[in-house]
Simulated assay, not measured.
Amino acid sequence: MTTDHRTHARVAVVTGGSRGIGRAVCERLAQNGLAVVVNYARDAAAAKETVATITAAGGRAVSVQADVADENAVTALFDRAEQEFGGVDVVVNAAGRLALSPIADLDLEVLDAVLRTNLRGTFVVAQRAARRLRAGGSFVAFSTSVVATRFPAYGAYVASKGAIESITLILARELRGRDITVNTVAPGPTATDLFLDGKGPEQIEQLAKAPPLERLGTPQDIARVVAFLTSSEGHWINGQILRANGGMV
């Protein structure tokens, strides 16, 4: 394993860490020597699988349930991280919700649910991270490259993610003087259950050919970006939106 040279063992909290990109991030950060708190909303079994994979490889991890939009639950999540591992150095908010619908047809209750998880959830996790991260730490949020490509039917999702991009530099500037970075990763089409759900083979093939590299991204592609941003090598990058999408807009 490779590790950053710090005066203490580094600790990461990853929301949405039981599946997809979140799970890949958990596993990659553990490979880099961080202890990982794997947050999940509902799928306890998948979170335990993530922990088991990490510990089997010699890493340290625990799973903790919390709704990212619930400030009390997120506070308890950070409390658990500090109790288990002594502090928090990296926070990655990978939890998210996707709903596809033309704007004219969207059920407003669905809109509320998307905004609650994606926007309020990110805000709550960022708020707690700002209060708890140690010097030298990093916060990474998630957006989507659809903020730029503006595909039809993504109105609710893009509305939630565009707001996240807007607050990235604001939070970075608010943390001036604390040696903490704040960045947002905006993946393009990535082969996760969330992305593939409801799409036919032709649509998936079309999206795979959109980037000049002519393939879907993988969760591991995105996890490598997060690992760099949260490492000492990536610490000069701050307040940025990184479109990890193989060359799309």
Rank of each mutant, 00 (worst) to 15 (best):
G17S: 06
T75N: 12
A153K: 10
I204M: 02
S138M: 05
Q203I: 05
V14R: 10
R128W: 03
Y157W: 08
R116D: 10
Y40N: 12
L213H: 13
R10N: 05
A41V: 09
V225Q: 03
F228L: 12
G239A: 08
F151D: 14
R224S: 15
V249S: 06
A227E: 06
A66N: 11
R215K: 12
T168A: 00
L175G: 02
T149W: 05
A30C: 05
V64M: 06
N238L: 01
L171Q: 07
Y157D: 12
N32R: 13
A244D: 13
T168W: 00
F78P: 08
A99N: 10
E27T: 15
L216N: 03
R178M: 03
A163L: 08
I54L: 08
A135K: 12
E71G: 14
I170C: 01
Q83N: 11
Q65A: 15
S231Y: 11
A104G: 15
A129W: 01
F85S: 05
L207A: 13
S63N: 15
N245A: 04
T7Y: 01
R132N: 04
L213F: 12
D193V: 09
A153D: 14
S143T: 10
K161G: 08
G188S: 05
L98P: 08
T75M: 04
L77R: 13
A163R: 10
G155I: 07
R80H: 11
L77V: 02
G162C: 05
I241L: 12
V25C: 10
R28E: 13
A129Q: 08
E174V: 04
